[in-house]
Every structure is written in structure tokens, then in C-alpha cells.
Nucleic acid binder design. Structure first.
Lengths: 216, 216
DNA sequence: CAGTGGTCTAGACCACTGC
DNA sequence: CAGTGGTCTAGACCACTGC
């Protein structure tokens, strides 16, 4: 009997909610309440099944669901582990690379364009920078396990990085390496209509795109 | 023996790829090749299992995976059906509402702000509109099954809609109702940093937000 | 080599659909 | 009420991990 099983309480077969969903909810709450902390291993599936009086398949279905939610990762031969993951309220700043790694996926990016210049009036307003500030702009296509996820534009004050080429895979890594780990950021997300070229990039049909895209 | 089973060919238990993944791939290809068309019902799970010489659980695992991919929807007591879904190349224009419905999810939107005005110089360039053209702007928070999915800004030439209030849930529905079903569009998608307010909206922690958001 | 997750089977009962 | 998907069991063998 693990202490976790005590926390989970008894599953009720007569409940209208299926057993695996009861278990999934219980484990989710245990993770959210930090009873199970990041990187903690769950009891083995066989152990959980025995403790809770259900079959292993029922346990697996709950765990599969949590893995799909990004709360757990399964490692064959090793165990099921709680993901280190972003806080729902974005309290902790994480990069795309970190986020994907925390979800057990391999981040990768392809460069579309990188350039340097001075802030536009719009950027100057949004980022609270003096006009004339030198910035680097990074246009990237982001992948997780080779699946195209998003097109990203990052605008960074040039003085935060040693050079335009300092960014390889992770922008955050490069900033941290330069001693500028971001501690505060204004995060903005837009959902917009795609240009034909952008659609093509995200569709995954072409990876041999040209590096130059106009009017991003 | 269904004709579909013939198309799928034999599953090979000695293959390193698990049976359910072999079947999932076979069904995916059948859907992509339109051997299984939109809204077509699959043979029943028991029938597929018998035809292919595997257990029903193996069939279900393949079908669950395809449902997670958005290629199928399951209807209890009825069957598994091929989704009408967007073409990978965005050849067919679909709205958020249509897309979500096709995936068996319920689209909903909450208004953040709606306004009218004349095109900005930037919009004028991007949308190829004459300066001074009257447009409606729609800022919405989009939900699927009450889960916040995205923040959307739509800019529509005012002459395409009878009024600013003509749009209820679906912009495309409103446009179609006005006789302006879009046949061609420039679609753009941006992944950007979120403002604190936007992050809050998407985190699902607050639904009683104010309708006014500045500097979107 | 003991223990783990990954896959698979044969069978069962349930709620639901649609005639 | 026959057929369907949804859930669940008990058991099995595999590949892999980590000591």
C-alpha cells in the first residue's frame, strides 16, 4: 500500500464515471497538489492495479490519458514519471525548447530568416524600447519530434546577445549563456490567417523552403 | 470480408511495428486516399477484428489513435465515422467553428471586443485594400468544448457584412449568410509572446474577464 | 536478472442507437 | 431488440532498464 494509494482513496465501480477516469482525475489532482512532484516516479502499474483493486489495463488507460495531457511521461523498463511542466498561469517562463523537452518531445527549429535592425515604431511601443534601439529578429519554424508546430518571430534587444549567430536551437539557452536569463517577459500570442507560404511550411509538405520570406 | 479489409492487407505480427500501429497506418492511408470518404462508417470493431485476425482491443487502440488525430469520431451505439476535415494543404477554406465541429468538438466563442474603423496602413498592405476602406474588427476568445483554444482577431471589409452585430458564433456562417462565402483567403498565423491578460484568458482561470483589452 | 512499461488475447457486461 | 461502441478483467509474452 503506497501512500499515494491512500491519497487517491477508493475507486467506486458503481460511479457513473468510469474507473480509469476516476483514477486519472485522482492522479491529476495528486500532481497538481504536488503530492507527486516533478520527476517523481509513480508506483508501478501492477502495484497501482493491486493497491486499487483494478486491472492493469484500467491503470494504463488512466496513465495514457495523463501522458496525452502532458502530465506524465512513460519510460519503458523504467517507470512513469511526473513531467516538469509549465505552470498553468505561466508563472514560470519557459521556452519552446524547454516546454517540448518537458513533454518528452524533441524540439528542433529551422531558420527561416535572421536579421538585425532598429526597432520599428510598433515594436518600440510594445516592448517599451527607445527608438533607434538595435534588435535582432529571429524567424523560425519550430518542430516537436519533426512535426512542425509553429512559426515564430522573436525580437531581441541586440545588447542581450553577443551576435546574431549566437542562437542555435534555443533562444533562452543563448540568452542564458550570455548571462541574460529572462526573469520577466511580456508574452503575446496571436492566432491569425496564414499566408500561402506559411501554410505550406506548417503542412509539413515541404522542408526545402527558401530562407527568405517576405512580409512576415 | 469487407473490401476495406482487402485494402488494408494483412497485418504482420512479426513486424517490429505493433499490430495496432500497422492498422492505424492502414486506416489512415485509406482515409487519405479517400477509400474511406468523409462521414463513411467503418466496419464495426468486432467485424474488423475478425477480418484481420486480431483482438478487438487491438482494433480499438488503432481507432482511438485515429480519433486522437482527428481523423475519426466514435459514436456509441452507432459506429466509427470518418471526419470531414480540412485538407492538409488548406485547399479547402474552413472556419474555426467548422474545423472544431468536424473534430467532434463544440465550438464556442466569447467576445473580447468588436469595433469598426478604417484600415490601418499595415492592413491596407497586407489585405490589399484601398486606404480608407471601412472594416470591422472582431476580437474573440475561441473555445472547443469549453476549453480555451486561441485568441482571434479577424478584420473583415465592412461591405461584406450587413452590420457589426451580424456575427454571432461563426464568422464564416455570417459571411455566407450575407452571400459572401469566402472562396479565397490569405491565411496568416503568428506565434507570439502573450500579454498577461491574454495568458490569463487562455489559462482558463477566469471567464469573467472584462470585454475591453487594450493594445491587442 | 528482477522489475518495468508495451503489446496482445478472449471474453464479459454495460449504455446507447436505430430500426 | 440486435448491433454498436465503452469499459473492464485476468492473464500472457515481449523489449527494455538498471542494478
Amino acid at each position: 500500500m503506497t501512500s499515494l494509494a491512500q491519497v487517491l482513496g477508493n475507486l467506486d465501480p458503481s460511479d457513473s464515471l468510469p474507473l480509469y477516469q476516476q483514477l486519472q482525475r485522482g492522479l491529476r489532482e495528486a500532481i497538481e497538489k504536488r503530492i507527486l512532484g516533478p520527476d517523481d516516479a509513480l508506483p508501478s502499474e501492477r502495484q497501482l492495479a493491486e493497491d486499487l483493486g483494478v486491472s492493469r489495463i484500467t491503470v494504463r488507460k488512466a496513465i495514457d490519458g495523463l501522458a496525452a495531457e502532458g502530465l506524465l511521461v512513460s519510460r519503458q523498463g523504467s517507470g512513469n514519471f511526473v513531467c516538469t511542466r509549465i505552470d498553468k498561469n505561466f508563472a514560470k517562463l519557459t521556452s519552446f525548447s524547454e516546454d517540448m523537452r518537458a513533454r518528452g518531445r524533441i524540439p528542433r527549429s529551422a531558420w527561416l530568416k535572421r536579421s538585425e535592425g532598429t526597432v520599428t515604431p510598433e515594436e518600440s511601443l510594445k516592448l517599451a524600447l527607445s527608438p533607434g534601439t538595435l534588435v535582432y529578429r529571429f524567424h523560425r519554424l519550430r518542430f516537436a519530434d519533426d512535426e512542425p508546430m509553429s512559426i515564430e518571430l522573436a525580437t531581441i534587444v541586440a545588447s542581450c546577445l553577443p551576435s546574431l549567430d549566437a542562437v542555435q536551437d534555443s533562444l533562452y539557452d543563448a540568452l542564458e549563456h550570455a548571462g541574460n536569463r529572462p526573469v520577466r517577459a511580456l508574452q503575446r500570442l496571436h492566432s491569425m490567417l496564414l499566408s500561402a507560404e506559411q501554410a505550406k511550411l506548417l503542412s509539413g509538405d515541404t522542408y526545402d523552403f527558401v530562407a527568405e520570406l517576405s512580409a512576415f
